[in-house]
Structures are given as structure tokens and as C-alpha cells.
Amino acid sequence: MDTLILGLPVAYYIAMVAKVLVAFVFVLLTVAYATYAERKIIGHMQVRLGPMRTGWHGLLQPIADGVKLFFKEEIIPDQASKFAFLLAPLVALIPAFISFAVIPFGGTIEVFGYKVPLQIAAYYDQAGAQVFDINVGVLYILAMASLGVYGVVLAGWSSNSKYSLLGGLRSAAQMISYELSAGLAIIAVFMLSGSLSLHQIVAAQADGAWYVFKQPIAFVIFFICSLAEINRTPFDLPEAETELVSGFITEYSSMKYAMFFMAEYANMVTVCAVTTTLFLGGWHGPAFLPGWFWFVAKVYFLIFVCMWIRATYPRYRYDQLMHLGWKVFLPITLLNIVGTGIWIAVTQF
């Protein structure tokens, strides 16, 4: 009980490992069934049925797909740069998962007399009065998002194919452009919350004071920029089938292809979780259901919105995309920051 490692009881570490496992399994399952949900939802929106054959209403489809991809032949192009080619899927997948380390996915629960905050990189002090979490949580997420670009760029370059290279370059340019607007959009949230810690940002949104109501412009721009950063429709130019085959994943096969696929969906889950945390009040909701339920419900709703957008909008053209990012979103986010500053100055002083 009282054994301390780096000044904390052993139980804290056990709790942390348990939280890692729970979050990891949650993201993996969500990723698997997001592929199914996407096909089903888009199918119904286009008056089709979507997958129907594997299991009841196609419910076993993700498992069948996984098994199929697992047993496919692994092909590495002859002229590929082998090290980077093998590294790229991992580099794409890992940042998407480790962003979850700082996202609070629920309130506090009590296990064996210990208070455990439902956030991986957080713990209560020994008196149980105050939560400590990483106090630059939002920046950590931005940093991980900026690392995701390596997977795409490396995949594009190492495949030694025109389509892959063009897809990779496009994607890198797109991610760098939209990262900027996304980062500037959430500065307005920091200005209101006065903290970069996600725990405190969620705490500031208790009782329905969600930032989506105070910062609607920032919310819309952040969500759109996030879609662009993770290459979702209508910004899926890096893998525009009509022009580039499959973009940077053209040369990949078998499990490595599956890893890029998982990275795409894991990124979507992460982005939806971050948006929930920053703008939709995190795990706060009516008290008759536990906090984690509200968190999961909001995340799933946003994932549904992503799929809805995919079923609705056509793809942007490349110059339109750059125009939108640099000439529309960037000025609006800057004005939003100035406006928020004026508002804070007027209301607080």
C-alpha cells in the first residue's frame, strides 16, 4: 500500500495502466466499428443497404475485413526505401493513439478507496483534493497531430512511385496549412479558460457553459481544419482516387495498408474526442448518467457528423483548399482572437 515510486503510491500506477488499457481497447473497437458504421451510414444516405452478408446486418464485417487483410500477401516494392517504407505505417498510427493520453474521458471514480480521475495522464494528490494532469495538454495534442504528417510523407516518398509521392506532398502541404488555423482557433478557447490543461478546460465548461456557445466560430473552424488535417472528405485530396489511385498508400498492401486505414479512423476518433473536450463540455452532461457515457455519446455524435459530411460534400480542388485555409480561415481565426481579447477586456476590467 505505502510503497512509493517517484513519490506516488503503487496503486496510482496500477490505475494508470488500467486506464491505458481501457482507452486503448475503446479506441480500437471504435476504429473497427467506425469502418462498419461509415459504410452503413453512407449506404443508407445513398439509399443502399451497405454491408449485409457477414453476420446480422453485416455486423461481423470489420472482423472479416481484418482477417482478410491479415492474410493478404505482403508486397514491398523493389525500389522502395525499405526502412522508411516499414516505418511509415507505425509513424502514422502511433500519434493518433497517444493523443488519448491527455484527454479526460470521464469524471472521478473511486476504486478501493482511491480517487481516480478518468484521464490517463492525471492523478489525485494523496489528500485526494486536487487533480494533477499535464498542464500543456492541448499543446501536447497539437504536437502529436503535427507528427502524424511524417507517416504520410514517409509513405509517399519511400514507395518510389509518382502517385504516392504526389499524394504525400499534397498531404504534407495540406496538414501544415490547416494546422495553423486549427491552432489559432483554439487559442480563443485558452483565452477564456486561462489554462492549457484539458482537465481545467473541461472543469470550466461544467453546467452547460460549453465553449461551443461562447466560441461558435472557433468551433466550426477547428472542426473543419481538423477534418482537413486528418484527410477526411471533403479534404481527402491526398488519396483522390480519380487522380492519384490511392495517394500515399498506393504501394501498401496487407496489414500495412490496414494500419494506414486504422490510423485514419483513429485520427478521426481523436479529433472528435479533442473537439468534444475543448468545445462540447467534455464528459459533462445531465447527472443521471455517468460522465464517460456523455463523453462517448458526444464523440460518437461527432464521428457521425464526419460520416454525414463525407456522404454530402464533393471533394475540394487543390487551389480551393489552399485558398480556404490561408485566405479564409486564417484571417477569421485571427479576428476571432482579437474579438475574444476585446470581449475579455470589456467584461473583466
Binding site: I134, N135, V136, L139, Y140, L142, A143, S146, L147, V149, Y150, V153, L154, W157, L169, A172, I176, E179
Partner: peptide
């Protein structure tokens, strides 16, 4: 100094090195 750490990753690993690789 977590802020320095995150800035290091965002600026150097996330921006400058991406440009160099580009």
C-alpha cells in the same frame, strides 16, 4: 518544463524537420 518540451516537438520535429524532409 513540459511547455518547452511540447514547443520543441511542435516547432522542431513538427514544422522545421517536415520542411527539411519536404
Amino acid at each position: 518544463a513540459p511547455f518547452m518540451a511540447v514547443t520543441q516537438v511542435i516547432v522542431y520535429a513538427g514544422a522545421i524537420m517536415v520542411l527539411i524532409i519536404f
